[in-house]
Design a protein around this nucleic acid. Sequence first.
RNA 1: GGUGAGGUGCCUGAGAGGCCGAAAGGAUCAGUUUGCUAAACUGACGUACGGGAAACUGUACCGAGGGUUCGAAUCCCUCCCUCACCGCCA
Length: 423
Amino acid sequence: MLQVSYIRENRDHVLERLAVKNFKQPELVDEVIKLDEQRRQTQGVVDDLKAQGNASAKQIGHLMMTGKKEEADALKAQSSGWKEEIKTLEEQYSKIEEELNQKLVTLPNLPHSSVPKGFVAEDNEVVLENGQKPDLYAGALPHWELAAKYKLIDFELGVKITGAGFPVYTGKGAKLQRALIAFFLDEAEKAGYDEMMLPLVVNEASGFGTGQLPDKEGQMYYIGEDKLYLIPTAEVPITNLYRDVILKADELPVKNCGYTACFRREAGSYGAHVRGLNRLHQFDKVEIVQVVQPETSYNVLEEMSTHVQSLLQKLGLPYRVLRLCGGDMSFGSALTYDMETWSAAQQRWLEVSSVSNFETFQSNRLKLRFRNAEGKTQLAHTLNGSALALPRIVATLLENNQTERGIKIPDILVPYTKFEWID
RNA sequence: GGUGAGGUGCCUGAGAGGCCGAAAGGAUCAGUUUGCUAAACUGACGUACGGGAAACUGUACCGAGGGUUCGAAUCCCUCCCUCACCGCCA
């Protein structure tokens, strides 16, 4: 959520940045400014009235104690008048505030100055490409066929017990999942992230804090009985650990990581590209999150991007890094890098990570602050990234490493899988 | 699921209609003392919004929302949450 004071003082800049994100309702900006003006004006009047009321109540108390009952009664008679007025004004105030918040919450974050203009995925900027795309042998298969051939994943069983998009991993497929999770967590720990194991369901306040609510309500599974949401990413529970927290400056940067299952309804997704592991309702992911001082956040973003890339390099996967264009970025992000691996059998890039700087967009909702050098509270910057999401890594790994003899496990993973080949 | 207790500042914990944004202690920070550490002493020490160039100042907040009252942390109502014990269960 953007800060009203910032919008008020930087109206033109806000409008210009929102345009980069192709925001459809720029008129909301002026509406917000107007409502904020009304809000402040009303508060002034209400505060003055209350100050009078408080003063006279205090005076009455004083008179009562000194035994001047008549004077007190006279004052009392006067006092009841402005109560109605205060009440009316307060109702007005909360109406204005509610309307203001409603509009404020629908404004996306402002994109960083380096964000390219654009509407769709094709407008994303390729920052770099790394690794060798493999040449597969003639009979090479897409991962879903490899999964069947080597009995790694049973999609049909998942459909039977749950539904489409909930695969069952079996045999070496299951072990590979566990190996990747352990590998990613170990790497994150080496990079200085403290590991956590987190609840997979969160309350409404958490969903709001990181920006999933109200923007993406329909994308989360909801347990109505208990008013809880299944997490779409570990970003939600991890970042919300710091909701309503004022950190000391020397506690920054906060670096946390966690493995969780992630649940996404993916309502409205369909088509050829959702086959196999390409798009699931439940998948596994290791997430990295940082809470940092504002001045450092873009360096930290690069650092996180480097970490994710190092994972891909260690796994020997060809990948590229995209700087997302305004139209393709998420609601709350100021700058996002997507990492995609090349899936050789499908002959296409698959998104395996997304690393974002939210600046103060989340922290403003979360009330996540730190005490700065002047001793004042200041909103921290939050960042997060997948490091990494498993399914498409598995897809790429299976496809790219297949040979006529079987699928070769990358050396770095062998200590985790305890086998070198899937055959 | 049943029963009981309780939600006050960073923590412990007092307050039971006005003198309470809230005692006291601890923690923290600054200073004094000190060969160093410790101790002792002194002081500072919530957040948000508004007004103001600033000093400063107004308002709100004692789980949340209503109500009673000139005045509510304190009384009343509703809700939420936490803890303990019992039952059930991994």
